[in-house]
């Protein structure tokens, strides 16, 4: 995937050559973005200019980890793989954005693709639109990197009006193996309608772990909080009892107490 370019460039070695050429063009004032006109205008309204469409990709081999048939447990190697792969894709996207001198990336989407040619391999992709503040102030986060967020243009505008600034897309993941019900247990509770404490505990714990890890990431950014948290469950290609719990959200920091959003007025429309 990575072709080493011949001339030494100021780009990180991590990015393919095509990227550097494309990004150099963008530095000359052309911008590309997948923003709608409405989003574009709103981002301009809060003093940002879109710089370009940025992306990062990582094809990762997700191996196997032995699971015990009858035990519920976290599969920490798989958790680490899923996390690292996304982290790599995100980092590359951030590098592209840094290359453009961006303050942040909005509208980030994180996808996982599986291809027929790659057994156990998955492509992790992060795409978004890099933006830069027009007043020259830096909006980079505590780690000196451009902020990332999955907010739409409208959400970005609204968030800024409430005195909050995005810091980064934060995520936590946990791959958990849910025990198959043991024979004795299955016989004793067959057909009954009662709580299954083992299942409750396993699934509850897995979700909490994913959310805790997401929160840890936010704390590293000294965020005030996380908005728009989504919780996703995916079985990927591991069979039904091994599940990835993924928690995603945008970490924000409060910069001013002033809320410039006009107080909403009650509108009841007779429009269908």
């Amino acid at each position: 995937m990575t072709e080493q370019s011949e001339e030494p460039t100021h780009l990180p070695a991590d990015l393919p050559e095509g990227a550097s050429r494309r990004l150099r063009e963008l530095e000359h004032g052309l911008f590309t973005s997948d923003l709608s006109v409405n989003e574009f205008l709103l981002i301009k309204e809060v003093g940002f200019h879109p710089l370009g469409f940025v992306m990062g990709s990582s094809i990762y081999h997700i191996g196997l980890q032995t699971r015990k048939w009858g035990a519920s447990q976290e599969l920490d190697k798989l958790t680490a793989a899923m996390y690292n792969a996304r982290e790599l894709a995100m980092n590359r996207m951030e590098e592209e954005a840094m290359e453009l001198g961006a303050d942040g990336v909005v509208g980030v989407r994180l996808d996982v693709n599986y291809y027929e040619w790659g057994n156990d391999a998955a492509e992790f992709i992060a795409v978004g639109t890099a933006v830069k503040a027009e007043d020259g102030a830096s909006y980079r986060n505590k780690l000196g990197k451009p902020f990332t967020s999955d907010l739409s243009g409208q959400d970005f505008w609204t968030l800024m009006q409430t005195g909050h600034v995005p810091q980064g897309l934060v995520m936590g993941t946990c791959v958990y193996h849910i025990a198959h019900r043991g024979l004795g247990q299955a016989l004793s509770s067959i057909g009954q309608n009662q709580e299954l404490p083992n299942f409750t505990q396993a699934l509850y714990e897995a979700r909490e772990l994913a959310m805790t890890r997401m929160q840890d990431e936010a704390e590293q950014l000294s965020a005030t909080g996380i908005v728009g948290v989504r919780l996703e469950e995916k079985t990927h290609q591991w069979g039904s009892h091994t599940i990835e719990f993924l928690s995603l959200g945008t970490a924000v920091v409060k910069t001013s107490d002033e809320v410039t959003l006009p107080r909403p007025t009650t509108i009841i429309s007779l429009d269908g």
């Binding site: 609204t158 714990e205 805790t212 704390e219 909080g225 989504r230 959200g249």
Partner: peptide
């Protein structure tokens, strides 16, 4: 509730499942 929840809930920053629009309305 599970032990991980206790750790998470004790953290200093908040997390919320609200959309940004709902978040803004909530602050209002």
């Amino acid at each position: 509730i599970p032990e991980a929840a206790g750790r998470r809930l004790a953290a200093k920053s908040f997390s919320s499942g609200l959309s940004v629009a709902d978040f803004a309305a909530c602050l209002h």
